[in-house]
Structures are given as C-alpha cells and as structure tokens.
Write a protein that binds this DNA or RNA. Structure first.
Length: 469
RNA sequence: UCCGGCAUAGCUCAGCGGUAGAGCGGGUGGCUGUUAACCACUAGGUCGUAGGUUCGAAUCCUACUGCCGGAGCCA
C-alpha cells in the first residue's frame, strides 16, 4: 500500500524500523515511515531520530542540507512530526548506533507544531495520563504496550498448546449474584421510567442486567463439556477503589479445568506465570531492558528468579502461624478466620518467601459459596497467588461439584437455588471435580514491566471519576 | 469511601507576607558526526476555583475541584 504523495514508486516496500535495525544483510535503499523523536542540527546536515513503534529503538537518519527542500522541511521537523524517508542504510560513523540512513528523499506527512505536548525529556506519569492519546509515542509506553501485546499472545499460546478451548463468555449478564463485587447496571430505561414501579420488566432484557464481574460460572459450563477452557476478556467492577492496583474495567484470564483438583489448579497457575515471564524475557528483551533501566533497577533479576525458582506454597493456617511467629507488629491483628490484610500478604511474599507464594485452603466463611469444602469442615479449596510488590495476581479455587454440599452452601450464603438452576444442573448431570482461577491481566503486565500503577499498563484506564478518551 | 500530601510558564520544579524565577521545550544566531548534543540571546504566567485575614497574599485561613501516596474492596 502506497500512501498518497509517496516520494518513491509503489514498488519500494516500506520497511519497519525494527526490521531495518535487525537486518544482518545490506539493505540498499529502503523506505521508512514514522514520527520524529528528536532532531540535532549540524552546519551541513541534521540528525533525525525516527520511531515507528515497531521497536524501542529509533533509526538515525542523516539529512543533508544540500537536498532539495531541506530549508523548508527543517522548520517542520520537530518532535512529533510524521515523515516518510527514503535512503540507503549505511554503517554509522558515530557512536551509539551501528547503522543509520543516509537520506535521499524526505517528505513531511503531518507536521507537529511546538504545541505538541511531548518533549524530548522525561515526563511524569501523571502528566502523561492526561494525554493518554499521545503517550503511546513515548519510550516507556511503547515498551509497556509492546510487552502487553506479547503477553496477550503468549497467554493464548500457552492454553492453545495445552488443548484448552477459548470461550467468549458474555459481557452482559442478568445474574446479579456473581458475588465478586459491585456491578455496573446495564439499562435502556431513562428518567422517570427507571424509577417507576415494575420498571425492570420493561427494561431491554425484561430483568435487571449488569456488566460481568467474572466469566467463571459460564466458564464452568464449558469446562464441563470441553474439559479444559479459558476466557480472556474485559471485566467490570463498580467498586469505588482508588488504588494503583484497581481499575473499573480490566482484562482477566479465567481458565477452568474439569477432572482437576486444587493442586492441579495451583500447578497450572504457577506454570502459566513462569512461562509468560520466560516468553517475555525471550521476546521482549529490549523493552524489558528499558524497563529495568528506567522503571525498576531490580526488574530483570526478579523476573529471572520468578521464572526459574519454584513458587512457595503455604496453607492459610500455616500462613497465620508464620505471621504470628514473625515477631512483627502488624497494624491489623492476625486472627485465624479473618482476611489476610495487604500488610500480611506483603510480609508473606516479600519477606518470608522472598518471591511468589501461593496461599491455599482458606476459611470457608470468608470465601464465596462455590468453593469446594474441605474435609476439615472449616476450610475451602481456595488459593491466592501473591507476588512481591503487587499482592494478589491470581485468585482461584476448586469448585464444589457435590450437589448437596453446594446447595447447603448457597443456603448458608442466603442465595436462591432458582437463580442458579443452570449452575446446579452441572452438578445434577455428570458432575465432575473441576477447578479454575482468575489472572488479572493488568497486574501481570505490572509484574513483568515493573510499572507500579495499573493506570499506566492499560491504554485508557477507567477508574472512579475518570473515563476520558 | 477513609487517612495524609500536593496544585506556580507548554513540561519539571524553586519561591512560603513586600515588583513572579530556573532548567527543559519554542524562536533567533553560533558551533560541532551529533545522540537527554553544546554556547549566547529571546518570547512565554488571572501562581487550581471561590471566599476570607492583611496596608499588602503565589505565600496565612476556609470551602470546593482535581491529582498523588497509603488503607479497605479485589484481578
């Protein structure tokens, strides 16, 4: 495809800068298209740093002052301007790059005047969030979103290679009892009609509808047909959470395995994390090195450790004992039967295990109804995978497959069997042990890149009072 | 939602009762196979919004808004 006004005949293919920089063989004359990052002028020529997003690095183009149009173009060649450039790829005379382009023809496609917000200096993340439409053009966000893309691909590859079937579970759900937090209401009712008596039956779906907070229950139905499935899609929580780890819209991966218990569940979870990090280390080396240099100096060592070292596994009961025996004074008391607080989870992963740790067999009273009851009568087969710096990255469980136990648990949680008739049918017809978990995709990207705020690993973050762009 | 902090030039910040500053970015000129290039000059601001205290407020007080950090909820 040749853009209008191209300076070269269509026969000459555009090359991505990544390919130009990686090429082992002489390339001769090539055409590239991208955005100016910075310009440095000499008396008789200018250096242009051009980036097209294909990789972190820029192509240095040497633009000779004797070329036609040089003087007119120069005033337009500011940071942000889009250009098409042709020229020969030659060995660089300077330090810092092995090759560069000797420009033969240059065309300004779209000028970026001096009001362009991105300067060739470091900006704060807070400022860049205000220009979320332009921040992908920075080094950091370029690296983060290339890594995010690769991780997404690696997740599909991981499951597809293991025979898992990808299921698209619904985004809109009519069951308001998924039990994973506040839900966003979906409705076509407006004004007085919304509040009127019996309004729900006149709504689009004839009942109350919401955005999904989890595809798990629907995922279970497919696991009980395809044995191993996974979902990978957007998830919505209307919680008024204002933290670096929470977003109202985020992406989640939820595998569900039939004929699988909690141990098998933990194995898949741990293997998945390790495989994904290995994949990123191999395929995103340049971007990860950048993150290691400018985001978190300890990043690469930590990733290698996570990829190689087996994860610690500690039962909830043992974890409580470890916390009580730690000699640490916590703000919140450690009590068996209570939730582990952030400070407790941090101690377990950052100080005790010094790496990822899986906590399993939680008290039944603090977990949802669908988790499988253990024989001790007081815990359920649940697990949380905690990683240093982020906390919970995976939460999962073996599901209660015994109809009588499940209905009893629903009664204890005050839930109506009628609302879950199809979920209970799975236990009525060919029930089978099964287990699964949810992996927060953004938290994974945070782990891999070292970026500490979820708003900086998702293109356009949705958080309380913020849905711009 | 709770606790704490912050809001000054396009960006990053200094100034903390007495005429609004620097670096970067922009412009002009110079220099150099440069690479966060360098040197000189130059333009650029209702100091978040609304009240209040004071002879005088960017500076002190109050409210509001937004953002940041921590906590809760969780992925």
């Amino acid at each position: 495809m040749s853009p209008a006004g191209s300076v070269l005949p269509p026969a000459m293919q555009r090359m991505r800068i990544k390919e130009v920089l990686a090429s082992e063989t002489p390339l001769g004359e090539v055409r590239i298209q991208g955005w100016i990052r910075t310009r440095r002028d000499s008396k008789t020529f200018s250096f242009l740093e051009i980036n097209d997003g294909s990789c972190l690095g820029c192509l240095q183009a040497v633009y000779d002052a004797t070329l036609p149009g040089y003087a007119e173009n120069l005033s337009l060649l500011l940071t942000g301007t889009s250009v098409e450039v042709t020229g020969e790829i030659v060995r660089s005379q300077g330090k810092g790059q092995t090759r560069e382009m000797q420009v033969r023809g240059l065309q300004v496609i779209g000028a970026a005047p001096e009001t362009y917000p991105l300067q060739k200096k470091r900006h704060t993340r807070e400022f860049l969030r205000e220009i979320a439409h332009l921040r992908p053009r920075t080094n950091l966000f370029g690296a983060v979103f290339r890594i995010r893309s690769r991780l997404s691909y690696a997740i599909h590859r991981f499951f597809q290679e293991r025979g898992f079937v990808h299921v698209h579970t619904p985004i809109i759900t009519a069951s308001d009892c998924e039990g994973a937090g506040e839900m966003f209401r979906v409705t076509t009712l407006e004004g007085a009609g919304f509040a009127a008596p019996g309004a729900e039956s006149r709504d689009f779906f004839g009942k109350r509808a919401f955005l999904t907070v989890s595809g798990q229950l629907e995922g279970e139905t497919f696991a009980c047909a395809f044995s191993d499935i996974y979902t990978f899609g957007p998830t919505f929580r209307a919680e008024n959470s204002n933290t670096a780890r929470h977003a109202a819209e985020f992406w989640m991966i939820e595998p569900e395995m039939a004929f699988c218990d909690l141990t098998g569940d933990m194995e898949i979870a741990e293997t998945l994390i390790q495989e994904l990090i290995r994949d990123a280390l191999e395929h995103c080396a340049e971007d990860l090195a950048f993150c290691g240099e400018f985001v978190d100096p300890g990043l690469l060592d930590r990733l290698r450790l996570i990829a190689e070292q087996p994860f610690a596994r500690i039962s909830y009961t043992d974890a409580v004992g470890i916390l009580l025996g730690s000699g640490k004074t916590f703000e919140y008391p450690v009590v068996w039967g209570h939730h582990l607080q952030t400070e407790h989870e941090r101690y377990l992963s950052e100080e005790h295990a010094k790496g990822p740790v899986t906590i399993f067999d939680y008290p039944a009273a603090i977990k949802p109804f669908y988790m499988r009851q253990n024989e001790d009568g007081r815990t359920v087969a649940a697990m949380d995978l905690l990683v240093p710096g982020i906390g919970e990255i995976i939460g999962g469980s073996q599901r209660e497959e015994r109809l009588d136990r499940l209905t009893a648990a629903m009664q204890a949680h005050g839930l109506s069997e009628n609302d879950y008739w199809w979920y209970l049918d799975l236990r009525r017809y060919g029930t089978v042990a099964h287990a699964g978990f949810g992996l927060g995709f953004e938290r994974l990207v945070m782990l891999v890149t070292g970026v500490e705020n979820i708003r900086d690993v998702i293109p356009f973050p949705r958080t309380p009072r913020n849905a711009d762009f």
